[in-house]
């Protein structure tokens, strides 16, 4: 036993030396670390696409002037919205870490709305560009790679924003459900005498006093409803009844806190890393695709 403990201590000390993070590499949780690794691989993909774009632009010689084709003010507004949504995400992460669940939820929602606004504006931007005559393999400015690289790179980025909006939606739904669970735990339903109705409590139905005692399976304080097991109907049969029908015969012990505050904060933090990365990539897409002027102008024939 003592030998095993010593071996474990030695292993932990060695792990601490190697990773500088005790027994967890780099002093962060595996979920956060894996998100960093994923973002690194994603950065490789975007890096490859942007370098390929640069190479095509350089070897093409002529290139259309993005400043005349796109509305830079409009794209600037898209950039503004994405930066704002990144800032609101950072606030949501910080609020979650501090345990301010209400603020975290509100700022997650704001971030989500920012992402949706960005996607809507990108749809407008694409429509505008397509109406000008741009296609994936051709465009009126005579440099096919111009529209091809635009659609591929902004499309790939837009796909990331779409995934991010879905990701944030799931995180937001989970946060909302946890808030309801927490509220239910903090303010449990009570019967007429003020006895707490928790899962596991033994209860009677007031209007059916002749029936045997029932066991509470689940409670829904937000609707004032109680789910009781009804053994005579089957092994797993349950009925949902209003809380005011219930009289507690025997209280259940107070259940442990149903939500994990650390997991909640970390879930939002990991989602935040992804969202900031999408903003980070846009910084380079915006600069390289919209702002850098061509050395030699290609112009439309009209």
């Amino acid at each position: 036993m003592a030998e095993a403990v010593r071996t474990l201590e030695r292993t932990e000390a060695r792990a601490a030396d190697v990773w500088a993070g005790g027994v967890s590499p780099f002093g962060m949780s595996w979920g956060k670390f894996m998100m960093w690794i994923f973002l690194l691989s994603d950065a490789f993909t975007f890096g490859g696409l942007l370098v390929a774009y640069g190479a095509v632009r350089m070897s093409s010689g002529v290139w259309p002037n993005a400043a005349e084709i796109f509305r830079i003010g409009f794209v600037g507004a898209m950039t503004f919205i994405l930066i704002c949504s990144s800032a609101t995400m950072a606030v949501a992460v910080h609020a979650a870490r501090r345990g301010d669940r209400g603020l975290a939820e509100a700022f997650l929602l704001l971030t989500l709305l920012g992402g949706l606004a960005f996607l809507g504006m990108q749809a407008v931007e694409w429509t505008h560009f397509i109406r000008e005559g741009a296609r994936l393999s051709s465009n009126p400015w005579g440099v096919p790679a111009f529209s091809a690289s635009f659609f591929i790179i902004t499309g790939f980025h837009g796909g990331h924003v779409t995934s991010g909006v879905l990701y944030l939606s799931f995180v937001l739904l989970k946060t909302r459900r946890e808030r309801q669970m927490l509220e239910a735990w903090e303010r449990p339903l009570r019967d007429r005498e003020g006895r707490r109705i928790h899962p596991g409590a033994r209860v009677r139905l007031l209007h059916l006093p002749q029936r045997p005692e029932l066991s509470v399976e689940q409670t829904y304080p937000q609707w004032g409803k109680v789910v009781v097991l009804v053994p005579e109907k089957g092994p797993n049969a349950a009925d949902m009844v209003p809380a005011e029908w219930v009289e507690v015969v025997e209280e259940a012990p107070i259940p442990p806190n149903p939500v994990d505050q650390r997991a909640h904060a970390e879930r939002i933090e990991i989602a935040g890393l992804y969202w900031h990365f999408v903003d980070l990539v846009w910084v380079f897409v915006f600069t390289l695709m919209y702002l850098i002027p061509p050395a030699i102008l290609a112009t439309a024939p009209h």
Partner: peptide, 19 residues
């Protein structure tokens, strides 16, 4: 963005390096 929004300033320096 990386230093303040993604908290790299508050992680170990090695994390910024591996990225």
């Amino acid at each position: 963005i990386m230093a303040y929004f993604m908290h790299l300033r508050y992680e170990r320096p090695v994390v910024a390096a591996i990225f």
